[in-house]
Computed example of a mutant assay.
Amino acid sequence: MQNLLSFLFIAYTTLSSSICFGQSTSILANENGLVLQYKKLDKIGSRYDEYCKTTFDIYQVEGTVINNNSDKAAMVTAILSFEGQACNKIYSNDAPAGGEVINKMFNLDIAHLTKHQTQYWVNRYVHLLPNDSMIARGYVEVKQGEQVPDPDKYFTYELIPSQNTSSTVNVEGKTSANQPVKPDNNTSKYNSLILGEWYFNSLTYEDENGKEVVETDNSGKYVIKSDGTAIQIAYDKKYNIRWEISENEIHFIYEDGLKIIREILQLDNKRMVLQGASESVMGFMKFTYTKK
């Protein structure tokens, strides 16, 4: 009986350790008070691909960035890249459609996919305030029965210390020292260039096989005004939004509180190219607009 109990205890301990290991958190970086963590979550399903005649398991992955500094905010770029598998579709005029299983990179861009809101700190937007954190989830596909590999990371950051001269204006119009200051759009080099009517020209992204896809349309536009408001027209729907620029990012804030962040890749008197992350393609999408 004692041997049986010992066996059951060992089996339970082994099983518990296995379950915890699958959900364990791995620290990928710990630098200057910033911690980058990764966790592989449970399998959320499987799908059978008709082209490759292969079943793929779908796993959730989670990335977290923590700012443990008590006196510094942070601007962060944190991208985790997982090498999973996908079906490369093959089309032929002489034979039925088929495919081959290939390796595919699934990217989790934590700063762009997180629901955490950027906030004001010492005259600029920041991803993380002191003692703050952000978290994002994505998915990775692998062939059935295989495990998600550990990710490669791209991790850069800028720490912004507090300033004793900073101040903020509260609702009563008073100021208090050592508090964040709301940035002024007029300080941006892009402020005058971005004003006007911008018509959607093209959308560029990579499909699941890594092939560049370009979609063109003329159904959307932005009307960006100098008072910080804008109108977006997309598929015959009109949205009243606010816009703010921080460094090389433009933030569109909708009436329901949704905030969309786009990196400004190019902006001049005639052309605007913005880039942003997308959950639908697990990568970046590039939006091109022209001014008329």
Rank of each mutant, 00 (worst) to 15 (best):
E247T: 02
Q117K: 11
S192N: 08
L203G: 03
V101T: 10
M105V: 15
N201T: 08
Y190K: 04
K39S: 06
D152N: 15
S92H: 02
K104S: 10
S6L: 11
Y12R: 02
Y235R: 15
K189Q: 08
I135L: 13
P161D: 01
K270W: 02
A74Y: 01
F252E: 07
Y51F: 14
K40Y: 01
I19E: 12
G33P: 11
S202V: 09
N185R: 08
S24I: 00
I19N: 10
N248V: 08
Y125E: 04
K89F: 03
K153Q: 14
S176W: 00
K189E: 11
I250D: 04
E244D: 08
Y289G: 07
Q163V: 12
E212P: 01
V61C: 09
H251R: 11
N178W: 10
H251D: 02
N186H: 13
K221C: 02
I90R: 00
E215F: 05
N107M: 12
T25F: 01
A177W: 00
A277H: 04
Y38E: 09
N103S: 14
K89V: 15
A11Y: 00
D49E: 15
G98E: 05
N68E: 08
S162P: 01
K143F: 00
A95R: 05
K72E: 10
A95G: 04
E206C: 09
S226Q: 08
S18D: 02
G63P: 10
K40D: 02
W243H: 05
A111M: 10
L8I: 15
K153A: 13
Q144W: 02
I160M: 00
E215V: 12
A29T: 14
M1I: 13
A177G: 04
T187H: 01
A230C: 13
F9K: 14
K292F: 10
M105P: 06
Y139G: 03
Y199F: 14
D207M: 03
G257Y: 02
A277C: 06
K225G: 04
T54H: 03
K72D: 08
I233F: 04
F287S: 11
I224G: 07
S70A: 14
D109R: 13
F82W: 02
I241D: 00
K211W: 00
T216R: 11
Q179C: 05
E141N: 09
A95Q: 06
